[in-house]
């Protein structure tokens, strides 16, 4: 009972956070509400028993990937006047509100969706590790290649061209 209430409140706050992400005009505000959404999502994962997913959500997603987003937003630092203006009209709000019952009706009638039992099965991290390293070994090794590719791509994108690089090498031997 309390679990249902807690999860419902968390889900409603989550929807609010993600809707704010789409609506808010400033980029940092959007990033901040996205981070708030991920925190709430991590709580939901935790309540449903997925301890590993809950912690990873914060460490990797909210704590690393969103840091990149925030850094990029701050590096670009578009002044507030130049941001595109968002105007929400009555038609937009009405359409959002009307789509919710339609979505619910469609899922119940057409897709035969039933409210799942909130059954928090505690998934131990050791079981995840066992499954990953024994059953899913090949995808795991492929992930390392994926990370390597991402690394090379990031460096290629962000590297200075040799021509425009400031040649401060000689004389800048910092206190060796």
């Amino acid at each position: 009972m309390i679990m249902t209430v807690t999860l419902t409140i968390l889900c409603l706050l989550l929807i609010l956070c993600f809707v704010t992400t789409s609506i808010i005009p400033t980029p940092v505000g959007a990033c901040a509400s996205l981070i708030g959404g991920f925190l709430l999502l991590s709580f939901i994962y935790g309540f449903l028993g997925a301890h590993f997913a809950a912690v990873i959500q914060i460490i990797v997603y909210a704590g690393a990937i969103m840091v990149v987003f925030v850094f990029v937003v701050m590096l670009l630092n578009v002044p507030t006047q130049d941001l595109p203006k968002v105007k929400i009209s009555l038609a937009d709000i009405l359409s959002i509100l009307l789509s919710i019952p339609v979505l619910i009706l469609v899922s119940i009638k057409i897709l035969n969706w039933q409210a799942p039992m909130i059954d928090s099965q505690n998934v131990e991290m050791k079981d995840i590790a066992r499954k990953m390293f024994i059953d899913y070994l090949w995808p795991f090794e492929l992930i390392s290649f994926l990370l390597l590719t991402a690394l090379v791509a990031a460096i290629t994108v962000a590297h200075k061209n040799k021509g425009s690089r400031y040649m401060l090498k000689e004389g800048s031997d910092h206190g060796r």
């Binding site: 935790g46 301890h51 590993f52 809950a54 912690v55 914060i58 460490i59 909210a62 704590g63 690393a64 840091v67 505690n122 131990e124 991290m125």
Partner: peptide
């Protein structure tokens, strides 16, 4: 919690 001291890294992140 199940994740033990990984919560620490979450907080410092």
């Amino acid at each position: 919690v199940g994740a033990g001291f990984l919560l620490f890294f979450a907080m410092s992140s």
